[in-house]
Design a protein around this nucleic acid. Sequence first.
DNA 1: TGAATTTGACCCAG
DNA 2: CTGGGTCAAATTCA
Length: 365
Amino acid sequence: MGTCAIEPEILSKKLMKGLVQGRDSATQLRTLLCKPFGDHGSVISAEELAEKILTSFDETISLLTSSSSDNSDDHGALNGGDLMNDGHGISPEPLDHHSHCDDRSSEEYSGESSKKRSAPALKDRRGCYKRRKSSQSWTTIMPTIEDGQAWRKYGQKEILNSQYPRAYFRCTRKNEQGCRATKQVQQTQDNPKMYQTTYIGQHTCKHILKAPQMIVDNSEPYNFESLVNNYKASTTTIDFDHHHSRNKNGSGIGAPTLMEEEQEQDQVLMIKEEAQISEDLSEKSSFDTEDLWSDFKDIELSDPSMGLLSPNGRRAGTDHDQGTVDSIPFSFVDRISMDIMVDDFVVKSIDFPDFDEAEFPLGSA
DNA sequence: TGAATTTGACCCAG
DNA sequence: CTGGGTCAAATTCA
């Protein structure tokens, strides 16, 4: 709701903070993974680092998401808006999308006729859903489809004049919480390694209170392989063209090969439409991010609201959450992309119109 | 066995 | 009428 709008410079700070935090944590994690048992002087576990990274980026994404959604008629991503997408202060979109029609669900198809869709039942679908027309949407192009959110694929279509199919995802909590967020993912024509993701609507669900089992359960020793497998198992993948490996094959979208990652170093992350981001920040690449982070971490790491957006929740009550995409343990293979992404994002992409380096003292606070 | 994905049909906006 | 967004039964997976 409008009362939660934040000022652009505050938003900019928070965005920068989240990115810097993620990058810093990723760096730490890399060190930790390179020398999992060595003396790296780290007192924080890989799981905790992964959690920090995910929290940072989820926070940042949420900032972009919520702010852009609140400013649909401008380039609102950086123009302020609600801080969190955890449902606080965010009213459902004024879209009559599906509405009550979701309730019919299986009932009409239950019973002896469940094997086939009967014509009468299908007729009842008429008028039951309206395609969202005016939803806030924004597009990103990244070498990964991962965004720290929980998505469930509900469709895939061949698109005219497009070499690659488009996959449709909805929030996994659509049924539980009526979250209307959806996204569409499609490989870009000119570079199949890049995925254009169009986000439609914003998350209205609260997914932050689910206990992150991976963090909570510290009884198990750090296991890199399980981390990677966990990621793969927890990651939505798209069977584009049917020649891409699926996640169980170990080379799916969520887990690019190292060779691919090297090539991806040239990739540029872009956020279009809502987030107008230029390359001006390249001049700011000389940031001493550690100093910057040191300035930030005391400020907001202790902020309870940070934890609220933890994406690392697991579905309670399930002994295996292979489908719970909201938990995306930070894998080794992805840390490189993360580094790349963060580098690209920070170095090339961010341009906060009101950004003032004075706001980010590089020395002491 | 429950949850996620696949896939073909349905439906609507343009 | 067509393209594309969504539904939901069937299938797959862990």
